[in-house]
Design a protein around this nucleic acid. Structure first.
Length: 583
RNA sequence: GCGCUCCUAGCUCAGCAGGAUAGAGCAACAGCCUUCUAAGCUGUGGGUCGGGCGUUCGAAUCGCCCGGAGCGCGCCA
């Protein structure tokens, strides 16, 4: 099923271009920039005229003449230098709404070549508190994961825990320094572990011998030292519990909770492949792979550090091999901030040289850092990072103020209010992040994550709740949805917007860009609000119109819920309000 | 030094495979609750699209130069 107007018009145009012997490359329409003049526009005549050195208006007129015969089209006109403006018939738009209402997927198609995609996002580290920097990776990754599944791809998501680098040696060293040995390690909880890590971090920053010691312990841990392994195992599992709790709060989900350590054995294999292929060499005591230096200097991959430990690039390369061999990945996508661009360039190039991922698409999606008001990566006033739990709690507190207390509303006890609080707070936080294009960073404002007016998640939830309310009333009054008829301009604009859903999702999919969905979802909710304000559903002029509007409203509701779901946001059935809210 | 990214309204951001009057949100101002949830709706003001040159019938969008900011550049991950 394809209910998209653009596709229909593109197909019609392609036929016309063929009969006119024009390059069908230009046979495309887009949503009009001038809604006062048209629904869609085709700028192809301008480009064609340039190539053929002809008058664009003449070419446009020929195309328009044929286009006008199409049964779905109300009017075609040639305006300005040669824009073709197309207006669709109301009945055609209305009929498409009826079809859309009958379709389980609301008119959305799937990809033609479903494949196996591994998504690598999150990347939290053992013993380190999660902070707002982890928010973006998790929230974006979760959304992409849902989008990819929806369009038909088979997705495997992996958190790729940072559990195998020097920080592990640092924290073990710190505990030994404090306790004399590692006997008490298994009694430590996450708070204590985090504290040790902080101390270790401070110490290693200023003390070279401490760093040296940490590296030695890391190498021994990786080498298989049983005592270190046992202690590390505990640190890892305690951290993982805390990390899982954080992600659960945000409804960020992973199929695999693997880490760098899981690729350890494969690291050895990769080293062997490199040696067999003769692409590795020893340099300053480290075993490296040199990379091509085309237009800029590119540092080599350091597989084995001079202290014997595996470098993290080797770990990432081995992980690629694991994902290809064990999970049959044909596409691997990484989500990290822009600081790791060079790293992934190196890793992908090395993977290519090693021949471990033939015909696998390796993609690094870069997102901007979360910045403070100074334009630099965000730090709190005391120089630390904003803890993720603090952020979530702050947002929830703000939401609680706007909700009634438990049992003030029938059917809403403590559990229900808690759930609602969670849903709204998470919507506020996630949407605040996802509305930004991922490539650009954004300035972190704590208050933004607790806003629910304007372009926010709760605004959209509110639109859904209002529709739910109308649908309940209609149900109670025995009113049913029916054939769509377009009378008011607000209805027509709404229907045209609804019809864009397939294109929006496909663009978000191919560009790996959730903000496209966020933007559409907000605009749709906004257009609905205008419609809601201008056109009464329950008190429509006649029963047929009421049925039509009911169908449109229900479609909007279903589309909004689907889109929010693709963003990883839930839509509560109702949005309750505390008495004192709204003055 | 080399490389990458960025500079659009007071603030935060869209728009950028060139196209018709550059858009949102917030903030400001003026209206709208006896009718479907006012977390809403309607309207007003506000921009030399960092600066310059160039390509083009046409540039926020493409190219070059300059200015400003951020990030990265072999044993942290």
């Amino acid at each position: 099923m394809n209910l998209l107007f653009e596709n229909k018009l593109n197909a019609t145009l392609a036929e016309i271009f063929k009969t006119l012997d024009l390059d069908i490359k230009f046979a495309t329409v887009k949503v009009s920039d001038r809604p006062d003049l048209s629904d869609f526009q085709c700028n192809g005549a301008l480009a064609l005229a340039k190539i053929a050195h002809q008058n664009p208006r003449d070419i446009a007129a020929k195309i328009a003449g044929k286009l006008a015969q199409d049964e779905a089209i109300e009017t075609v006109s040639v305006d300005g230098p040669g824009f073709i403006n197309i207006k669709l018939k109301d009945e055609f738009i209305a009929a498409n709404m009826d079809k859309m209402a009958q379709d389980k997927r609301l008119g959305c198609g799937e990809v033609e070549d479903p494949h196996q995609v591994v998504l690598d996002f999150g990347g939290p580290n053992v013993a380190k508190e999660m902070h707002v920097g982890h928010l973006r990776s998790g929230v974006i990754g979760e959304s992409i994961q849902r989008i990819e599944r929806f369009v038909g791809n088979n997705v495997i998501s992996d958190v790729h825990l940072g559990d195998w680098g020097t920080p592990m040696g640092m924290i073990l060293a710190e505990i030994i320094k404090s306790d004399g040995n590692l006997d008490k390690v298994t009694s430590y909880d996450i708070a204590q572990i985090t504290e040790f890590y902080k101390q270790a971090n401070i110490r290693c920053k200023e003390d070279e011998t401490a760093r040296e010691n940490a590296r030695k312990i890391t190498a021994a841990l990786q080498g298989g030292d049983a005592t270190y392994r046992r202690a590390w195992q505990h640190l890892r599992s305690e951290s993982l519990k805390a990390i899982k709790a954080n992600y659960e709060q945000l409804d960020v989900n992973f199929d695999l909770w693997l880490g760098e350590s899981d690729a350890h054995e494969i690291c050895r294999e990769v080293v062997k492949i490199a040696r067999d292929k003769g692409i590795s060499e020893i340099d300053n005591g480290a075993e490296i792979i040199r990379l091509e230096e085309t237009n800029k200097p590119k540092p080599p991959i350091i597989m084995i550090k001079s202290d014997g430990g595996f470098g993290y690039q080797l770990t990432d390369i081995a992980t690629i091999k694991m994902r290809v061999d064990q999970f049959k990945a044909t596409e691997i996508v990484y989500f990290t901030d822009s600081r790791q661009t060079l790293h992934f360039e190196q890793v992908f190039e090395a993977a290519d040289k090693l021949g471990i991922a033939p015909n696998v698409k390796l993609q690094h999606i870069v997102f901007g850092t979360v910045n403070g008001a100074d334009g630099k990566p965000f730090k709190t006033r005391d120089g630390g990072v904003m803890n993720l739990e603090t952020l979530i709690e702050m947002s929830k507190d703000r939401v609680r103020q706007s909700l009634p207390k438990a049992d003030e509303v029938a059917g809403y006890g403590a559990a229900e209010i808690d759930k609602l609080t969670q849903q709204i707070a998470v919507a506020a936080i996630k949407f605040q992040d996802l509305k930004n294009t991922i490539a650009s960073g954004y300035v972190f404002e704590l208050e933004d994550f607790a806003k629910f007016e304007g372009k926010t998640g709760p605004y959209i939830q509110y639109a859904v709740a209002r529709i739910n309310s109308v649908l309940r009333k209609a149900e109670a009054n025995g009113l049913h949805e029916g054939k769509v008829i377009l009378v008011a301009p607000e209805e027509r604009i709404l229907a045209l917007k609804l019809a864009q859903i397939h294109n929006v999702i496909m663009r978000a999919h191919s560009e790996k860009e959730p903000s496209i969905i966020a933007d559409y979802t907000y605009t749709l909710a906004q257009i609905f609000s205008t419609f809601y304000n201008a056109c009464s559903i329950m008190n429509a002029e006649n029963p047929d119109l009421a049925s039509s509007r009911l169908r449109l409203a229900k479609l909007v509701r279903d589309v909004l819920i689907l889109m929010l779901n693709l963003l990883g946001i839930e839509a509560p059935e109702v949005m309750l309000k505390a008495e004192n809210i709204g003055e």
